[in-house]
Amino acid sequence: MSNTIDDIGISTTGERRAVVSVPGTTPDPDWVIVARGLKREYDMGGEIVRALRGVDLAIRKNEYVAIMGPSGSGKSTLMNLIGCLDSPNGGEYWLNGMLVSAMSDDQLARVRNKEIGFVFQTFNLLPRATALQNVELPLVYAGIPADERKRRATEALDSVQLGPRLHHRPNELSGGQRQRVAIARALVNRPSILLADEPTGNLDSTTSQEIMRVFENLSRQGQTVVMVTHEPDIAAHARRVVVLRDGIVESDERRERFVDRVGISHATTKVAHD
């Protein structure tokens, strides 16, 4: 167990409280994500569903955070808001010093392209495109010229050890390889945050561990990682765990406290730190 890693880029409760407490102020650029009193309600045929009822959340650069919670807790809604796929009904969301909650659809698309790297449970690769073409996709929308796209996509695939698989289509790759293509795609535009939604949900436990190692390495290299999951032993790979319940933050603590409280065997978490 290396305490040094945990010491890097972990924000203290006091710091977080300070940064979320004053609405309307632009947070210090060190804070990648600042959500103040975030609310999201859905109108389901006349019935108002309050998915988020005032979430305060502050994540500093280089933190590795897991967002947990049972189904219906609002974690998917929070992920959509953090990923700029949706806009809140109330509160403010600052991403990298930008007030995202006030942006138009096209501005949000721009922010998703530049600031967010998505990794999905079902990989969401284009089936008819090669690994390289899949990874190039965010660069296409960023307006990067073709030869630079190719160079950067190749680099990104190399960084997840898929250099020899550039021209394979998703159906020629294993689940773990597909998810690594998705991670390369998420990273290719050098986003502020890597946002993973149940990244191991469709993988067996060995492959899950493999993907968690990739995340761990990225975090060590300075990448801010936010991972949404309902599995406590996956959440335990992060350095900080936020638990949602009924649309509000129930707990926000270091991994060690979370592991102690929920009681996950040390063996599962050990792998990530090899």
């Binding site: 796929l85 659809d105 096209d106 698309a109 998703r112 998505f118 996709l137 965010p138 929308y141 795609r185």
Partner: peptide, 16 residues
């Protein structure tokens, strides 16, 4: 539909 959703998530604007 899923492809369109993915493209939007990756930064495709409406006009794209």
């Amino acid at each position: 539909t899923a492809e369109i959703g993915l493209r939007k998530a990756l930064g495709a604007r409406r006009k794209d």
